[in-house]
Amino acid sequence: MTTSAPSPVLPLLARGLAAGGSAGLLSGLFALLVAGPLMDRAIALEEEREHTGQALALAASLAHGETEVFSRGTQHFGLVVTAVVTGLALGVFFGIAYALLHRRTALSGGDHWMRALTLAGAGFLALSLLPGLRYPASPPGVGDSGTVGDRQLLWLTAMFLGAAGTAAAWRLHRTLAAAGRPAPVRHSAVALVLLATLTVLFLLPPNPDPVRVPAELLWDFRLLSLAGHAVLWAALGAVFGWLGLRYDPAAGRGTFAAAARPAG
């Protein structure tokens, strides 16, 4: 074999962008239709709370210039745009991670469907579920602008720990599989690593902000937030895997070789 196969990273990058963009759009629309009304209710409650407060607070908020920058309609549109941007960005990382994990068989010679779903599951665990269990999402009305810097640092740390823990579990599983250990041993090892990660996550300081929304609304919002994450990752993995099944490595190489081949 003197010929060089095209580097797998660019086709996978394109696949990641396509999968991420469509997954972002899907989760954005899901969020808009299912969680949007919940957020509108939370904002209405927040305004009600502000206005039934003392006249002093009202005057302060007026003096503070509490006019909204965007209407709720624009923010609804912003929700979908945010989800698409998130999907595209995650799709880039997904494609690169896929190329790194399956170097030689990234384009052909593997079970692309199961691989993509597995990687998407790992991504959900690392960046959504583990950090989300420690710092669950909160509806509008919760959140003190004075603590936002601290909370961003905690959230970032939680995502880093989630990613590190998931990567460690993945590695350990690979090592044990290479050593011929049976599935119960491998799976128990993965569970232990994830449990340790969760323990470390709960050693981080708690979210400092008081939560002043009804418990039912808070619970629904957190559940739907996690569902939105799940939709994003599931669609990302499924579209990426489906495009992987459809990809024809011969055609991919053919387009590269066409320039060097005499036209016939």
Binding site: G28, A31, A35, G36, M39, E68, V69, F70, T74, Q75, H76, G78, L79, V81, T82, A83, T86, P131, G132, Y135, P136, A137, S138, P139, P140, G143, D144, S145, V148, R151, Q152, L154, W155, L224, S225, G228, H229
Partner: peptide, 21 residues
């Protein structure tokens, strides 16, 4: 121009669990 980016992505931030004001 102020808090435009933050306010535009406001709902998305809350929904994806990002810290918000």
């Amino acid at each position: 121009t102020g808090d435009y980016l933050h306010e535009f992505s406001h709902d998305g931030r809350h929904l994806f669990g990002a810290p918000c004001h």
